[in-house]
Amino acid sequence: MRLDRTGKDFVVEWKPDGEWGFDTRPPPRKCQVQIKSTRLGSRQVRVKLSATEWLAKDLAPAFILCPVIDAEDQVDHYVGFHLANYWLERILERLRKAAVKREIPSHLSIALTLSRGQRLESRGVRAWLENECGADMARYAAEKALALKTIGYDDDGPEYIMTVTVGSVSEIVECLMGERELDASFGTPHPLRN
């Protein structure tokens, strides 16, 4: 057994949906979970930025789950962080700044404020994970891949002037009818809109 160095303490998997054929049933629900325990009264936990990068870049749903321990060393409750939307943006921003400053992510940490997470009782953890993951893993992965590519950019992408080269007018008509592809070349990009 090898030590996991990438922060994924648990890979949580659900059974495949039994209502489908073996070959057609969708990918089973699965997520990555890192445990970060803390004491009752703490306001935040700190996680290595390098660990959050592994979790954030994984296209499966990823969570940081904080068991909050009371004075009797018992779990009082949990706080869950789904590394999507706000937290995905926070992680990518920290990584961007670290890259510019030539800092090493494993030497840095990111603070997760407990009040911004989802407070959970022990019995509610499973249902929360299921709800956050959703039922369609392929769709989740596609949306996360798109978010990783687009979150945080200060523009909508470049604009180009496209030049299409054709041998005759009928080739344009055939392209508009969906019958043919045309070669296109792009000029220098226009200044980006903010």
């Binding site: 180009y160 299409v164 009818m177 043919r180 592809e181 045309l182």
Partner: peptide, 8 residues
Amino acid sequence: PPTGRVSV
């Protein structure tokens, strides 16, 4: 600038 083809 990307390279590409246009289809409709």
